Simulated scan of single mutants.
Amino acid sequence: MNTDARVDGYIAAAAPFARPVLEHLRAVVHAACPDAAETLKWRMPFFEYRRRPLCMMAAFKQHCGFGFWQPEAKGGDADGMGQYGKLTAIGDLPPKRTLMAAVKAAMQRIETGAPSPRSRAAAKPAPAVPDDLAAALALRKHAAAKRHFEAFSPSAQREYTDWITEAKNAATRGKRLATTLEWLAEGRHRNWKYL
Rank of each mutant, 00 (worst) to 15 (best):
N2A: 14
T3L: 07
D4T: 11
R6Y: 00
V7S: 01
V7K: 02
D8Q: 10
G9E: 14
G9Q: 11
A13E: 13
P16D: 01
V21R: 07
C33S: 04
P34S: 01
P34H: 01
D35A: 07
A36D: 04
W42I: 11
W42M: 08
Y49N: 04
R50A: 15
R52M: 08
C55F: 06
A58G: 08
A59G: 05
F66V: 05
G67H: 11
F68R: 15
G75R: 08
D77P: 00
A78Y: 03
D79K: 04
G80Y: 07
G82K: 00
Q83L: 04
G85T: 00
K86R: 11
L87S: 12
A89H: 03
I90R: 04
D92Q: 00
P94W: 10
P94C: 12
K96Q: 10
T98A: 13
M100V: 14
V103W: 00
K104D: 06
A105Y: 11
M107I: 14
S116W: 06
P117C: 14
R118C: 04
A121S: 09
K124L: 02
A128L: 05
V129I: 14
D131T: 09
D132F: 03
R140H: 12
H142G: 12
A143H: 08
A143N: 09
F149T: 08
F149H: 08
E150V: 11
F152S: 07
S153W: 00
S155N: 00
A156W: 05
Q157I: 04
Q157D: 02
T161H: 01
T165H: 06
T165N: 05
E166C: 11
A167Q: 10
K168S: 11
K168D: 13
N169L: 03
A170L: 10
G174P: 09
R176L: 07
L177M: 01
T180A: 07
T180L: 04
E182S: 12
L184G: 06
A185I: 02
E186N: 07
G187R: 00
H189R: 06
N191Q: 15
Y194T: 13
